[in-house]
Amino acid sequence: MAAVRLHSLQAWLREFAKLIAENKDYLTQLDSAIGDADHGINMDRGMRAVVTVLDNEEFTRVADLFNKVGMTLVSSVGGAAGPLYGTYFLRFGINAGDVAELNAARLGEAFLAGLEGVVARGKPEPGDKTMFDAMAPATSAYNAAIDSGHELAGALQQARAAAEQGRDDTIPMLAKKGRASYLGERSIGHQDPGATSTALLFAAAAAALP
């Protein structure tokens, strides 16, 4: 089975940065409807900082790469997205460990560790209208696909599709976390910006990792 090497993981991060940059205004526009109109701006600032790190530093271990990426996001994004995405990549890296590549099953474990980090930091429940609502189904879909014998590329496509479905499913939800929660009923009918950027994370994985 194909393994994911460090350069592929870096390509994932670069692709995520590209998708965030392309969708910067869209994410900010979604956030201005139910939040504070800064999600695209903040994520773009953070991922540009990550790309600068990738351009300037050599990595030989997955753990080191994601520790640096996590700390870069924590110190450059701010808001809630900084600690949440930062914790995601920190835990992803700790789980991946001192290795130069991940096989498909180990990648799934790292996705899950990242998800658990987000849960520990933000304490979301399913249906709260947060990034968790895209991240949890994407992670489950990936691991279920690998368990049932799919190849890496196919499993990543299923993760991407599940993240996008999860993103769309946030539209009718009543927000219970973050600034959107202050809207109460008025949050219904709007797509969650955090779930939207998380769908881009898995779209980037499907495009860059196989």
Binding site: D38, N42, R45, V74, S75, S76, G78, G79, G82, P83
Partner: peptide
């Protein structure tokens, strides 16, 4: 101080 309307960071 953080960015406008954005929390500062842990560092």
């Amino acid at each position: 101080p953080g960015a406008v309307f954005t929390s500062p960071t842990p560092d």
